[in-house]
């Protein structure tokens, strides 16, 4: 573990990313205590610019809502959707990839055609279709994002399993009478874990981007304040109150950047072979 941290911390960007993410997590956790009122409620007159009124650091939006409160509550949604949809996508992608890679042949063909199908479909368009048909709610948003983001997991896991499948230690486990399920779970998957972890951290970032894009288009959960919604709502007043679009965008960029940096750090720490030589 100490060796892991030493390799991780050698990547300065990754450490910065970790700090940013921690800050975002703290914001999300503190939101209900710092801003107990609903972020939807009107607190002042509309279009107050940032740093002009005490107690409303970032001002108000077109409907007089507190922008800072929206940012804090939006962090909750972004992290929740990012994490949960990634977990769901992993739980679809890992079994499919593992079965395809382990059994090969027709099973592989069938599962990979299925995966290829989902990978070819323009994923953002599919997410739009799903949310347009099933009414937007947090649950469906998570499901829609998971449905469009599992194929890369399946492909990665399949590739890893395929290369591990014919390693001699897996053949030895077969000969020692262990069941296929046991071999997949205890021999193969633990060795495929490092790249999956790296991919997962990047998927959380992509899911946050996807969620904000969907909310921007008006396909977000109407009961939940999110960064994408804030930008979408401020779009029509871009000329007069540009900061209303600008500020939530910065929040998204920082969060996604932090997750990408962490992904790179994890990659350096978990896959020493591929470690880049630049500091």
């Amino acid at each position: 573990m100490r060796g892991f941290w030493r390799r991780y911390s050698r990547n300065r960007g990754a450490v910065i990313g970790l700090f940013i993410l921690l800050a975002v997590i703290i914001c999300a956790a503190a939101a209900p205590f710092l801003f107990p009122r609903s972020p939807w409620s009107m607190v002042q007159r509309p279009f107050l610019p940032p740093f002009t009124v005490d107690g409303l650091m970032l001002g108000t939006d077109a409907l007089g809502r507190d922008v800072l409160s929206g940012l804090f509550h939006g962090a909750r949604v972004s992290l929740l959707v990012g994490l949960v949809s990634t977990v769901v996508a992993l739980s679809i992608g890992i079994p499919i990839g593992a079965l395809a890679g382990y059994y090969g042949g027709l099973v592989d063909d069938g599962l990979m055609r299925f995966t290829e199908f989902f990978q070819t479909i323009p994923s953002f368009a599919l997410a739009i279709v799903l949310l347009a048909i099933f009414q937007p709610s947090l649950g469906y948003i998570i499901l829609a994002i998971a449905i469009v983001s599992w194929p890369p997991v399946a492909r990665l896991v399949r590739g890893e399993v395929l290369s591990l499948r014919h390693r001699e230690f897996v053949e030895a486990a077969t000969l020692s009478g262990q069941s296929n399920l046991r071999i997949i779970i205890w021999q193969v998957l633990p060795n495929a874990l490092p790249p999956i972890i790296v991919l997962a951290s990047l998927m959380v970032a992509t899911a946050i981007l996807l969620e904000s894009s969907l909310s921007f288009l008006g396909l977000g959960d109407p009961n939940v304040m999110s960064w994408g919604y804030m930008i979408g709502a401020a779009r029509t007043v871009l000329r007069t109150a540009w900061w209303l679009s600008f500020i939530p965008g910065i929040a998204i960029v920082l969060t996604v950047l932090a997750l990408n940096l962490i992904g790179e750090g994890l990659n350096d720490a978990l896959n020493p072979r591929l470690r880049s030589r630049t500091p």
Binding site: G228, I231, R239, V253, L257, L261
Partner: peptide, 17 residues
């Protein structure tokens, strides 16, 4: 890395701004 972390719609908005 920055471009990679930036939402498409937001870049579009900022660019037009």
């Amino acid at each position: 890395l920055l471009f990679y972390a930036t939402p498409l719609f937001w870049v579009a908005l900022m660019a037009s701004l």
